[in-house]
Design a protein around this nucleic acid. Structure first.
Lengths: 197, 197
DNA sequence: CGCCGGATATGACTTCAATCATATAATATA
DNA sequence: TATATTATATGATTGAAGTCATATCCGGCG
């Protein structure tokens, strides 16, 4: 989201991460602005009985965990490498300076937050108004859109059922069963396990 | 959030609203920046079987429906006066100009969005990780905090059970039953129907 | 090609929130 | 103060998602 050269100019440093490596924990005090250079990072909550809830998955070029840099709160979720990845980070101070110095970057950052709020609103509407199929469909549509899929075109979902479950707050079996029903209703296509919609 | 005088200078106009009057519908194209002057406004989704989900309730001084002014999307939820209220509005263009002209306003606006994202993250974590009591407790804690209640002090919840249900995606009866259980567990107090926590 | 591990699939059973009905308490209004 | 109206409360029943067990499929790799 912010140019890599600019981040480097502001003292940015790279970090290589192996799959499942922790970047920060839920409850940690936020000290850095992070951006994905390669691979992907997920932000997650783990509840009392070990179940994982995925707040979001961030891919190359996307920043994560920034909202708390602007308000005085600890991280509401932890960050973990979703696969072998590379991230770049600058200090919180640096980030706040960048916002002040470059109004155009500030504006596009505001737009990113607005877009995320919009997505969260769409999701929570479906999550609250019960029905696993609604939840899953809402998620798939969101994924489709954010991956820049032009409307109408078939789109290959690259997440395993388990991660779809972790993002919707459902169980794997429920996701599998619901998706089978959705296939019968022609809402999605499943070819050798892979999902298209 | 933005000074009233400033809004007036930028062509702001007031609108009186009676309880349940619609300000805009889900799916409408956003044209104005709105701010509550008096009373309160709720943003809601109505699902297929008429059930209401409350995305948020906005009180005096708070703005609502602004995120979509920054991204090219229709409203993900409608806005309705929660009681007899007054709002002030300026055009989308005007709002975007204000952000550009007043960097300090822009920054505090970004902080508002960040805070909302933070709240949504806390809520969706609990909503997804099932269990009505968790959901309700998360909501109550959020309300407590955003109403500036210093930690530890008892706080009177001013929402009827129905609205708590509409905000958590549960049914009234479930909210009532869960709250009774929470009372027994000394998580909250109930005195003649009123909830304190 | 055949083996192995992880993902997907399916069945049987249980649990808990939704639903529907109805009662009681609290509050506004005459 | 009496009455209407809304909010809160509680019981009985039902249905859908969770849980646990087990089977099958798919892709990678020797």
């Amino acid at each position: 989201m912010i140019q890599q050269e600019l981040l480097i100019a502001w003292g940015g440093t790279f970090r290589k991460l192996h799959k499942d490596q922790v970047i920060f924990f839920e409850g940690d005090k936020p000290l850095y602005y992070y951006q994905v250079v390669e691979g992907s990072v997920k932000m997650i909550n783990i509840n009392d009985d070990g179940k994982e809830f995925i707040q979001g998955i961030f891919k190359t070029g996307e920043s994560f965990g920034e909202p708390v840099l602007l308000i005085d709160e600890p991280y509401p979720a932890g960050a973990v490498a979703n696969e072998d990845s590379v991230v770049i980070r600058i200090t919180k101070q640096g980030f706040l300076c960048v916002l002040k110095e470059y109004p155009d970057i500030h504006l596009s950052f505001t737009q990113v937050l607005a877009q995320r709020l919009y997505n969260k609103a769409l999701m929570s509407k479906e999550i609250a108004s019960h029905g696993p199929e609604h939840r899953i469909l809402a998620l798939l549509n969101m994924l489709k859109k954010t991956n820049g899929c032009v409307n109408g075109k078939k789109f290959r979902i690259n997440f395993p059922r388990q991660q779809i479950a972790d993002m919707t707050g459902l169980r794997v079996e429920t996701v599998i069963r619901s998706m089978k029903k959705m296939e019968k209703k022609k809402l999605i296509e499943i070819k050798s396990g892979k999902v298209y919609c």
